[in-house]
């Protein structure tokens, strides 16, 4: 059990995806590229003990174990839409707190322009590490102002429970206005850096996956349109796909990108 106090201002009232669907249909390539594989193979992931080191351009570098991280700020429940770059979506109640709480704690220096998230890559625990689909460890990144946006959630649980391994236990990011792959899972290191970090999917296919990867119905993936999406468990044989919203409906984040050409910075 891992309850959080519902934060209604950051929660949607849309129908939540069944727990079973959200925990058996996952993209977590460290455990295999098939969507059913993470649920089958993530049992080998050891989430205790777990420490996260926070380093780089900060005045107070820290190494925190999970208990310390959990106590850093009050846990909230937030029901977010999740839009996968592949064209499907879910609605999931996450438990965590704004990443900005952690940023406050470590006091970034003026040089900290970006945040890099480094995730676990241990062949012994993760059978998919070693596949040549991606470079390991899986890394992701945000601009510091994006990371500071209150919607960016440092996440420990879902559906009132501790995160299942296949969903990125014990600690992950959730960035509801970006495609799902931007939200790094099983984070072991958080680095504050000066230059834009390289990110795994961008390294793998730069023309398909940009650094920003904001949900954007007007910018197609080269192999499919992003104008619409299929809500898992709802949109099926009898209904048309639903329209995808700019920033996945989180218009709050629009000022972060004021003046940017989002077709170029996709």
């Amino acid at each position: 059990k891992l309850p959080g106090k519902l934060n209604p201002s950051y929660s949607t009232l849309e129908k939540q995806t069944p727990f079973k669907d959200a925990t058996t249909y996952n993209n977590y390539y460290e455990f295999g590229t098939d969507k059913s594989e993470p649920a089958m193979y993530a049992g080998t992931l050891k989430t205790h003990p777990w420490t996260v080191s926070i380093e780089g351009e900060v005045k107070k570098p820290l190494t925190l174990d999970l208990d310390a991280l959990l106590k850093l700020a009050p846990l909230e429940e937030r029901v977010y839409r999740l839009r996968c770059v592949e064209g499907w979506s879910m609605v999931i109640p996450w438990v965590g707190y704004s990443f900005s709480e952690l940023i406050k704690k470590v006091e970034p220096t003026g040089n900290a322009k970006y945040v890099e998230f480094v995730t676990l890559a241990d062949k012994k625990q993760m059978p998919g590490v070693g596949s040549r689909v991606l470079q390991w460890p899986y890394t992701e990144g945000l601009r510091i102002d994006e990371a500071n946006h209150p919607l960016a959630l440092l996440t420990f649980g879902m559906y009132g429970e501790v995160l299942p391994n296949q969903n990125g236990a014990p600690v992950r990011m959730v960035l509801p206005w970006k495609y799902g792959f931007k939200s790094a899972k099983s984070i072991v290191k958080i680095r504050f850096v000066k230059d834009q970090p390289r990110t795994s999917w961008n390294l793998s296919a730069p023309n398909e996956y940009g650094f920003y990867s904001n949900v954007n119905p007007d910018v197609d993936h080269p192999r499919w349109s992003q104008a619409s999406e299929r809500r898992i468990g709802e949109d099926g044989f009898l209904s048309r796909k639903r329209k995808t919203l700019m920033f996945n409906g989180y218009a709050d984040v629009a000022p972060l990108y004021a003046g940017m050409d989002l077709k170029r910075y996709y």
């Binding site: 040549r132 991606l134 296919a205 080269p222 192999r223």
Partner: peptide, 9 residues
């Protein structure tokens, strides 16, 4: 082949 190309799979 092209369908799988994005994931180098």
């Amino acid at each position: 082949w092209w369908m799988k190309a994005g994931k180098h799979d």
